[in-house]
Design a binder for these strands. Structure first.
Lengths: 145, 145
DNA sequence: TTACTATATAGGTTTAGCTACTATTTTGTT
DNA sequence: AACAAAATAGTAGCTAAACCTATATAGTAA
């Protein structure tokens, strides 16, 4: 998997370009995030990262995740209330969230991948992000009821 | 404005159908929410409602707003982090949120109002809500910078 | 109307998620 | 090797939101 190595290289250059230092913690947090498919919360990343860096503080994890979001290396998944969930996959994709088990599922849909923002909005607003958000019940949660 | 009276009637029937009691607090909170155009947080509803019901508790407001969400008389506005914002307008519409001032603007767009959910999702998920969420900077926040 | 039962409320307590602060350490660069 | 800018650990603080329990109320049935 040189894919990860490549992503880390890009990430390191990205950091330098933004004047951010490349620290082991930052690298490890980023690596954990892109390796995860579950759109983890800060708490979930913290638990995982302690296996490799036992002395890292929760604050560092949370702050770093926000930094990744600010620099555009990751983003906060849109949702309704609940804990912040992060996503390191910057490729165009959509999310379905189960309101019962809170799992987030990725999916891709051509027409959603490039949403054309209404022109009357473009005049007044600077659009930074446009996504389709779908929520409901996943298969196993439907069966439970 | 018999529109409000009509909505209240529907709401009361809706409550009874779900086995929920029609209390003055519940009615007033619902009325406040549908009268508001600003997608208020629980705190904002609480402040407003104290003008008519000075003895209401914050917990009641917050719990009731969640009840409204659960029964389908309102919903929590999707977003990234921040405080929960509620919306009593159940008609199809989309949201634009300014990440600076946190204001939420409604807009309507034909192609968004009836998003066709991918068929492969329909098989596994029960879709309860599908909306387009746009975030960025509103006009006045752009000018400030 | 009155009495009864299930549900809702007020008020206080508690928790969770997140942010702020400061002394110390580390990175990246001269 | 030394220096300055920036990041980290650890603690402490804050705010939103959920929990708990005694009391009050709505809806129902006699």
């Amino acid at each position: 998997m040189d894919d990860i190595k490549e992503k880390l290289d890009i990430f390191h250059n990205h950091c330098k370009a933004k004047g951010l230092k490349v620290t082991p913690q930052r690298t490890e947090i980023y690596k954990t995030l892109i390796a995860s498919k579950e759109h983890p919360s800060a708490e979930m990343v913290y638990e995982k990262i302690r296996q490799t860096l036992p002395n890292v503080s929760f604050d560092t994890v949370n702050r770093t995740l926000n930094t990744l979001n600010d620099m555009g290396a990751a983003f906060i998944v849109e949702g309704c209330g609940d804990v912040r969930r992060f996503d390191g996959n910057m490729e165009n994709h959509q999310h379905f969230k189960c309101i019962n088990c809170k799992k987030i599922f990725d999916f891709s849909h051509k027409t959603f991948d490039n949403i054309s923002v209404p022109e009357n909005l473009l005049g007044d607003f600077k659009v930074l992000r446009a996504v389709v958000y779908i929520e409901g019940l996943c298969k196993s949660c439907q069966e439970k009821k």
